[in-house]
Amino acid sequence: MREATLKVFRGTDYETGEFKTYKVPVEDGMVVLDAIHYIQKEIDPDVAVRWNCKAAKCGSCSAEVNGKPALMCKTRMDHFASDTEIQVQPLKTFPLVKDLVTNVAWNYEVNKKITPFTPAKDADWTFFQEDIERVQEFRKCIECFLCQDVCHVLRDHNRKDAFIGPRFLVRTAGLEMHPLDKANRIESLKDHGGIGFCNITKCCTEVCPEDIHITDNAIIPLKERVVDEFYDPVMMLLKKIFGKKQK
């Protein structure tokens, strides 16, 4: 049976932690998460890893495999040449807890600050498939936070103070484009969401395991809505004259 070599980060901080090498037998169709489970079962039961569904539906097993943010349950072992080491490490953008587990609590704090769904009191709840296709794409998000991890605004520049990150731009887009939502999140998107921090380099879209076109379908349309309200003098003037459009 083929054997794979995994280098797994072990430790509770980056100063003292180190990569530990494991040999793991490879079965057909095996994924990296299977290899980590093998290590837990047969070698080190205390290897810390988050996982739940093992079917790319819950977004728990996010890690960086050979430097690329990915879901371990979706990363096939046969994707790698058999003679190379596979390096598995935790998400870089978030504080380390242990081994492959990071503290992603910041994301949950950000989510709380987004104005929730606000339908009209008299809504009759009739709307059509074409009205919601966009929103449904955004609602496929499984909150794996890979986009947050890879986004250089958060990863390289650590601007968690001023930028909510792709995940929550997607969430905001899902609310703003809902045909029955009445709230306006555009101003807060500009001032508190930091949408201007995004320079649309599209890494979020590249890593999204749900194939959500984060940049093209969520972020850029939101950026243009911000332009409508804050940067386009003609639009702003028209709005002054004719009043804000009824949402």
Binding site: P69, V150, G196, F197, C203
Partner: peptide, 29 residues
């Protein structure tokens, strides 16, 4: 900024390394 996904970028957009990254939220971008 960044050169590729998961590759360390430089703060070229803040125009100088000393400034904090602001992307397209402030002048000039």
């Amino acid at each position: 900024s960044p050169p590729a996904c998961g590759v360390g970028g430089i703060n070229a957009l803040g125009l100088s390394q000393g400034k904090k990254y602001c992307g397209e939220s402030t002048f000039p971008l």
